[in-house]
Nucleic acid binder design. Structure first.
Length: 285
DNA sequence: CTTACATTCAGGTTTACCTCA
DNA sequence: TATGAGGTAAACCTGAATGTA
């Protein structure tokens, strides 16, 4: 409630949904390097500046995850220190988000641990791990997360750890925030797409009505004697010199040539409504 | 090549918290 | 002021995809 959609700063002039959310191929983990703006507020410091945001191609390739299997979440800060020494780290919660049964059990275990791993986590809970305590992120935390999301809507483990360290959150919290944020973005985009399609439908319906009226008028006119009286007869019969076919033309042979050999696509009414431009051009921003 | 495991993500759900009538 | 409804966001669950040993 504290954060409206506008406050999210969603940029919704996005791609076509079929391309954006295609499930056949996994979405790119990182935007192209050309679009990757410098990290806001210089979050990670110089030692992580280049390595924390690799290109999508080497996102997974650079992670020898087996080195850190079974790492304890409580060691997250220590692990980040290891990042300074160019040691590549997997998510401390990675053991949590794995196979479902094991994942659930270990998550419960981590719930018991997390009180000590983040200053933002319940300090008054008294160790009741059975009930999850929800915490609102501070405005500063939300701002930094938003700015990071604008640059990269996904995080690699190093980015996640660095961001968690800076915001004094658990890496799992950062991970969850990004997952939820992507879901919100997609939901918002879906709403925008639906609105766009609804307007297209309205335009097509109106155009269909107009054409129906036009057809009815022409039919009425066709059965009227005045229709033939007002109709001017073809003035010339010309033959196309290339295909040697006779065509009716009221003006010149150029019209015949155009009709036979160039054949521009008729500009239908709906095409005038939806000009051949990228879908994005018509979407509200 | 196959298998087991780790990791991440999308999609959906649950739940705590907040606002407002 | 109390309260219930509804909305929102954080946290969670599940299955799929992918990479690696």
């Amino acid at each position: 409630m504290a954060e409206k959609d506008d406050g999210l700063g969603l940029s919704l002039s996005l791609r076509c949904p079929e391309e954006q959310y295609k499930n056949v191929n996994p979405p790119p983990q990182q935007p192209p390097a050309a679009t990757a703006a410098p990290f806001p507020l210089n979050l990670f410091g110089s030692h992580l500046h280049s390595d924390a945001f690799p290109s999508s191609a080497d996102r997974n390739a650079e992670q020898p995850r087996s080195l850190f299997r079974g790492i304890d979440i409580n060691q997250s800060i220590t692990v980040i220190d290891a990042c300074d020494e160019e040691v590549i780290v997997s998510s401390p919660n990675s053991t949590v988000s794995s196979v479902s049964g094991k994942r659930s059990r270990e998550r419960e275990e981590n719930d018991g641990e997390r009180d000590s791993s983040s200053l933002e986590i319940d300090d008054d809970d008294g160790g009741d791990a059975a009930t999850r305590k929800k915490l609102r992120l501070s405005k500063e935390q939300a701002t930094v997360l938003e700015q990071t999301f604008k640059s990269h809507n996904t995080l690699n483990p190093k980015q996640k750890l660095a961001l968690a360290k800076q915001l004094n959150l658990r890496p799992r919290q950062v991970e969850v925030w990004f997952q939820n944020r992507r879901a919100r973005t997609k939901l918002k985009q879906t709403e925008v797409d639906c609105e766009y399609l609804r307007r297209c439908c309205e335009n097509l319906t109106e155009e269909n009505r107009r054409l129906q009226r036009e057809v009815n008028e022409l039919r009425t006119l066709k059965h009227s004697p005045q229709f033939y009286m007002n109709m001017s007869p073809p003035t010339t019969l010309t033959m196309c010199p290339q295909c040697e076919r006779v065509a009716v033309s009221s003006s010149s042979s150029m019209a015949v040539g155009r009709a036979h050999h160039q054949l521009p696509m008729p500009m239908t009414s709906w095409a005038a409504i939806i000009p051949p431009q990228p879908l994005d051009a018509h979407r509200p921003t």
